[in-house]
């Protein structure tokens, strides 16, 4: 039995007070108004540890109500322990319904993935961000970071991409790939697309849905509104590439066109063959079921 069932109020569990709700909503509105800008907010103590999705959770709690349907995934999996716990908490605190099917959800809170299914207009993707600062790797001084964003001085980010390519032959950055929000020419702020892999980055570009990034520990919220250009920082002569493993296919549904993750080889004796499954478990399940 869920907590909401035994409490009469629409917002039954008092996880977040009205003041916090209002503050976060204001921060979200600011973030939407200035795409890519990291809006500071007073991150509250949550029943989950910071670094475990507290930023995303606060956004979802501030937005969701009984009319909402919430999907929560962790590494693309609705049944991950963390996803289950967060989903229970959100449902209990807001009276929202829950689902695993992306098309049914009004809010999808995620760590690491964007669902394989296309999302539609009106849906909100809430990302749990571990490190919101795209410049963290090149600068640690807070005031200098502020200056760099204020002046759109991203030269050192480009240098780090240059260095990566020179030293490794390819761009090796996996999650958190830096993107200019608003496009190469019209853009203003570079964001970190943490925690999603490069695979999912193109889905943010001119998306139908609204993306909200919440970083609990760093106390920052930023947004990519629908229909907004999101351009990965790439050299004009080095195309942006997503991760692929030639020949790999999901061993459950057979997909080779979804984001795959390798699973540990079984302990049974035998040749060490790399095994792959879809990261998006709900998508994988539906695909398996629809096949003969």
């Amino acid at each position: 039995m869920s907590v909401s069932a035994i409490l009469p109020d629409a917002r039954p569990a008092n996880v977040m007070d009205d003041g916090a709700t209002r503050e976060i909503r204001r921060a979200v509105l600011t973030a939407i108004a200035v795409p890519g800008y990291q809006v500071p907010f007073g991150s509250r103590e949550m029943p989950v540890a910071r670094g475990w999705g507290s930023g995303g959770l606060q956004i979802t709690l501030a937005m969701a109500g009984p009319d909402d349907v919430v999907k929560v995934i962790d590494q693309g999996d609705d049944e991950g322990v963390n996803a289950v716990n967060l989903r229970r908490l959100i449902v209990a605190a807001t009276g929202a319904d829950e689902t695993t099917v992306p098309a049914e959800a009004t809010i999808i809170q995620t760590r690491h993935r964007i669902p394989e299914d296309p999302m539609h207009n009106g849906q909100v993707l809430v990302l749990q961000v571990p490190e919101p600062e795209p410049l963290r790797g090149v600068e640690r001084d807070t005031r200098e970071l502020e200056r760099m964003h204020a002046e759109a001085d991203y030269a050192r980010l480009w240098v780090s991409l240059y260095e990566d390519r020179v030293r490794n032959g390819v761009i090796t950055q996996t999650t958190g790939y830096p993107c200019m929000v608003g496009g190469r020419d019209g853009g203003r702020y570079v964001i970190s697309t943490t925690p999603i892999p490069r695979w999912d980055v193109p889905r943010l570009h001119r998306s139908a849905f609204l993306s909200l990034f919440g970083a609990g520990r760093a106390k920052r919220i930023y947004a990519v509104p629908p229909d907004t250009d999101v351009e990965p920082l790439t050299f004009t002569d080095v195309p942006f590439e997503v991760e692929t493993t030639p020949g790999a296919a999901c061993e459950r549904c057979g997909s080779s066109e979804s984001y795959l993750v390798s699973i540990p080889a079984s302990d049974a004796a035998g040749p060490a063959v790399e095994r792959w499954v879809c990261s998006d478990t709900d998508w994988c399940r539906r695909r398996s079921e629809s096949q003969p």
Partner: peptide
């Protein structure tokens, strides 16, 4: 960073975006 990267710093700051040209 590398010697080339240090020079690239000025070039990218001035808007150079082609890896080959840099």
């Amino acid at each position: 960073i590398t010697a080339g990267g240090n020079v690239a710093d000025r070039l990218t700051a001035a808007g150079w975006r082609s890896f080959g040209e840099i």
